[in-house]
Design a protein around this nucleic acid. Structure first.
Lengths: 246, 246
DNA sequence: GCGTCATATTGACCTACATCAAAGACTTAT
DNA sequence: ATAAGTCTTTGATGTAGGTCAATATGACGC
């Protein structure tokens, strides 16, 4: 196995672990946030714990959208493709994030595990029944989707109007902000995705991402002790760069 | 008044017309879709009809998000700005569309009327109360926001990975599809926005939009009888161009 | 109809980033 | 440890689309 993973190869066929919602490690920041014990039990009854190995495709754009997922461990890349193979990342997911938004019953993007991942899987039909029963759950989902929409609009501004250095700086800052909101510290961030993934997220090439990062390194704004990890040394400067204030 | 409009100058201060939801011309395609008469009455009770003239700013990015709107007439542009004035359109709204998604209680973008507009305005706090009372309404809103999110992701692919001609072709096709879904015919589309608005929507300059359109005209794929109106002559060719299949 | 102003088009030139190519640095397997 | 493969970095060159500048077209008021 290329990735060396010991996890299952497909998300839908091998639910290896059944982790009840009651024990969920990301409950306070995900779909399950602020549900009553009773509601949590209902949700738990339709969920299945799933583990997938690094590199595994979890969902495929245009496949029938039979499941929704909550990420409980690892990280995931989301992307769309053009017929000739050009690729646009639409997002990276981390524990607490939600996966599986669809249109016309088909997934709107593909998703692939960047690392070994743990997911909580819900059959769409049964989750939708539950939404009718539990208004709090529907409200929670609405809030999550609304937030995602706002972030998507930020990304449009980035893709349409920012320069390479502004794009890379913005990207690092958004990862930092996420990390901070979870662990308290946002100086050291994890980069589980490759340079070409970052490029496809920012509308740049691998080479430009690399050049821009070495640029930031030379200025002392960031350090990259190892690929996969990055330290922000001057967050004010990075913030200015992200918005073109320099 | 520069625009020659006879409508009110601000969205929040001059509710000129009180149009009850029962008579709404866009009910079947908007928030109010598939609500019971009783629920519709509740919704109607918290809504105010508002008219704004061309060029009027309806909401401002970072303002306190006190209202949500449903567009019932006219068209609107949504945009975000960078500190130095660079602008990214995040969307164009037409009758049936929803306006006012917020994050941290602030609007995520600004909105300006492209033509004289009619809106249905809801105080956020009261609408949120109503969402708790009427699960169907919340479900409807969730579906609308989810659809918007999918479209936002398509736009990311466009902004990050498409060429100028692919961008312009995609834009014309999306307007065509919208028009078709409403009127049945999608060959002739209305372009209430200027070239620079289109540029800011597609991540291009005015000049590039103009050049690309004359290019499409020269090839006979579109005709532009008058600015503000465009006819698609060869929709297959335009579709191929939009996806880089040529 | 005529003048004013805003917007659109066209042309010449330029630059940020892409592309192409080669050399390093890691990773994993044996 | 070493070899093979993958990913990253760096350099040289090309180009799509931006910028700057000059007309042209159209909309509106008088």
């Amino acid at each position: 196995m290329r990735s060396g993973s010991h996890f299952a190869q497909t998300a839908s066929s091998n639910p290896l672990v059944n982790s009840p919602c009651e024990k969920c490690n990301v409950a306070e920041m995900s779909l399950c946030h602020a549900l009553s014990c009773d509601d949590l039990r209902k949700l738990s009854s339709i969920s299945t714990g799933v583990e997938v190995g690094k590199g595994v495709t979890i969902i495929n754009e245009m496949d029938s959208a039979d499941f929704l997922f909550n990420v409980t461990g690892g990280s995931i890349k989301l992307y769309k493709l053009l017929p000739d193979g050009r690729r646009q990342m639409t997002g990276f997911l981390f524990p607490g994030d939600f996966l599986g938004i669809a249109m016309n019953d088909c997934y709107a993007y593909s998703a692939e595990a960047l690392e070994d991942c743990k997911l909580c899987r819900f059959p769409r039909a049964r989750l939708e029944e539950l939404l009718k029963e539990i208004p709090d759950l529907e409200n929670r989902l609405l809030n999550m989707v609304s937030n995602e929409l706002v972030l998507a609009q930020d990304q449009m501004l980035l893709l349409g109007r920012k320069t390479a250095i502004e794009k890379v700086s913005s990207f690092l800052l958004s990862l930092s902000k996420r990390t901070k909101s979870k662990t308290g510290a946002g100086n050291v961030i994890s980069l589980p995705m490759g340079r070409s993934d970052i490029g496809d997220y920012l509308g740049l090439t691998t080479e430009t991402v690399s050049r821009t990062l070495t640029n930031l390194k030379k200025k002392g704004i960031v350090s990259i002790p190892t690929n996969g990890r990055l330290e922000i040394n001057d967050i004010e400067e990075l913030t200015d760069l992200a918005e073109g204030m320099d």
